[in-house]
Structures are given as structure tokens and as C-alpha cells.
Simulated assay, not measured.
Amino acid sequence: MGFNLEHKDGTRDKWSGLRALFEKDRDFGIFINYQEKYNLNGVDGPYIINNQLYEVTKENKLLNKNIDRKEKLIVNVGNSDNDQFEFQLKDSIISEPEFYELPEKLVVISDIEGNFDGLSSFLINNGVIDKNFNWTFGNGHLLLNGDFVDRGENVTQVLWLIYKLEQEAIKYNGKVHYILGNHEIMNFQGNPRYANKKYKRVAQLISKNDSLKIATQYLYSDKTELGKWLRSKNVIEKIGNYIFVHAGLSPEILKYKISISDINQIVRKNWDKNLYDEEENNKVENFLTGKKGVYWYRGLSQDYKYYDKIKENELNEVLKFYQADKIVFGHSVVEDIAKEFNGKTINTDVKHGQEKNSEKTKGLLIENGIEYKLDGKGTKTKL
């Protein structure tokens, strides 16, 4: 038997096991801080740095070219349908507002994790976009409640689709909201533990650095278009009387009396640090970005190893402080869109279908103040 311990920087301590003596393609021995070698695997990108565009072809070649930032760019999706769409780069990227009136219709989905087929067909079948991936939701709002990166094989394609829809929605007085989750922020910190292996290799090649931590940090830094864009997003927003946050709000947040604006501001200043494992002196920063913070806390849904599930009286105090009626969150997987505490919480993190048109893919619709469950086939059921 061997052992294999992965570190947060992507290196491993490993023992090959005795079988390696008899296998030609496997090294024998004990390796400390071993850097595994990764390969590109199918179409990926584009990655844009100033006027340079990088993309990976079906033949696993990384191409690089100069672009005119005003021209339309093509995204090729690595799926069986070879989907494709166009988008244009934004003229400027600014931080998002945190407060909105409740629109007539608002669709919420979370925890897609690079699953382009599940996301795109869900949006098509529920009238948010058409088959050419264009916005058809008028003045409606679409809210993406964190964790749209890692695990899956079409992360960049998912991100560019959101980027494109943001611009189109504005033309119809609609809006796309993207709340950051723990997986986006792990990549800010250079922790690609849950990333598909091909993203580790492309990060190394584009950054010209074999350190997975440094390479991943570079890919998600403000030096790249996607990194700069993601860093303009919030970790919490309030729309009408609903709070939207990826993981949740611990009752302990009331000790610090932090406003929604302060939460976003403090997290934005600290999200490159791993305060989950390596706390610093500031208690507020440690709390907001740590184990009970807004993109890690699981207590709205379950008991967890560091704390118990929130009690209804505690939830009521949190809602009262933030002058809200309900919290909508993801992060903690449930079998179905779940309401708890007399409807004061709604969990949207389900095991989405990995294929198109799957009834397993689910989201939330709030239409004229009434809540519905949507699935990937377009079925609408009142909650």
C-alpha cells in the first residue's frame, strides 16, 4: 500500500508502494512536496490578459494571440454538442451594488461547479435564455449563489456565459447577480484542490510557474479578465427582504454588529488570505472569512463539526438585525430545494444533473412575491 497526502499548494507527500518496483511508468520511493504533473484535456478558455488571448484546442494545444478588445470573441464548450457562443469584453469593471428592490421575477441557482450542460439547459427551459444562449428574461433578475468553479470540465465556459448575460440583461433593465462562494475564493487564495486537473496545467502554462498556488492565484488575480471580473462581486446581497449569501449567517455575527456593506468590504480586503486555517489578529476578519463566515458556515442547514445548527430564535435575531424576512443560501447539499424555519431559510444546493434537460437540476423562482421550485426541464412547482 502507498500513502498520499495532498497539501493546499497542490504538492503531495507520497509513498509509491512496493508495486511501483514492477511498473514501468511509476517511480518508486517516498516523495515529499512532490509536484504531480498535469495535462491539458480538451477545449478550454479563453483566458484574457490585457490584449492577449489564450485558449486550449481539442488537440490539447495552448494557443496565444493578440486581440482587439472591442471585437467579438468565441467560446467553445467542451461538450457533446460542441456548443458555442460569442461575447464582448466589458469597457470597464466596477464593484456591484449590494441592495436592490425585489423584481417581479427572480431566478436563483447555486453550486453549478463548471457544469455548463446543467446550467445552460436549466436557463433555456425556464425562459432565461434562448437556444443561442442569449438573454430572454426581460427585466427579470438571475442570481447565481456561489460555487460556479471547480470540479467540472467547463468552468471557463460557465463563467463567460455569466459574463455575457450580465451585459445583455442590462439592456432590458434586467440584472445578473453573482454571489461568490468558497470555491471562487479558494482559487483567489491559490488553492486548486477541487479543480479539474486540466485547470492546474493551464494555470502553470499561462503563469509560467510550476507552483500550483502561485499559478492559480495568477489566473484568478486582477491581472486576468475573469479574475478582475470575479473580484468585483459581492459575498452577500439584499434584494427586497431576502438576503442572498453562499453559505449562511452564523448567529455569532451579531457580536460584531457588521452591516452588509461592511461584510463585503472586509471580505474583499481579506479574501486572498486563508484565514480559515491561519488566523491573524483581527477577530472580525477571522470570523467573516473563517469557519463560521459567510461562505463557509453550514449551520443554517445542519449540525457541523465546529458548531450546532442554528436555532429558530437565533435565526430570528439575525433576520431582525439585517431587517430581512428570509435567507437564501447554498453550500450544504440537500436532496431538493428546501425551506426551513417556517420558510425563513431556503437552501438551493442540490445534486444537479450533469446532462442537459435533467429534472435533477433545480433552482428557485420568486415571482410576484411567490416562491416556486424550477427544474431543468422547465417544470414549475409552488414551494
Score class of each variant (00 low, 15 high):
R231T: 09
I266L: 13
L18Y: 12
I74K: 13
K58L: 12
N196D: 15
E23T: 13
K58Q: 14
K175S: 02
N281A: 14
L319R: 06
F22S: 09
I93E: 06
E113Q: 15
E71R: 06
K382Q: 15
F287H: 04
V245A: 08
Q323E: 14
A169K: 03
A324C: 06
D308S: 15
L212V: 06
F3H: 10
G181N: 02
W271T: 08
P192M: 02
E86C: 01
K61G: 04
E36L: 11
G181Y: 03
L219E: 01
G290P: 04
S80W: 09
D130E: 07
V75D: 00
G378F: 05
D83Q: 03
V350A: 08
E225V: 14
L254S: 03
F87A: 00
A247R: 04
F31Y: 13
G146F: 02
V176E: 02
L102I: 10
D44F: 11
I366K: 05
I214F: 10
N191T: 10
N182M: 07
D262N: 14
V334Q: 14
D349F: 08
N50S: 13
I162G: 00
N274A: 07
N281W: 07
N60F: 10
V235Q: 04
Q302P: 00
N115E: 01
K61M: 11
Q189F: 04
Y100P: 01
E237A: 13
G190L: 11
V43N: 06
Q157T: 01
R151H: 05
E312Q: 14
D262H: 12
A203P: 02
H141D: 04
I170E: 12
F122T: 00
L5E: 12
L89A: 03
S261V: 12
T156W: 03
R12Q: 10
S16G: 09
L89C: 03
D308K: 15
V235Y: 10
V75H: 03
I48W: 03
N281G: 07
I327D: 06
D222V: 09
E153K: 13
K339F: 15
D81L: 14
G363E: 08
K208D: 12
F87I: 00
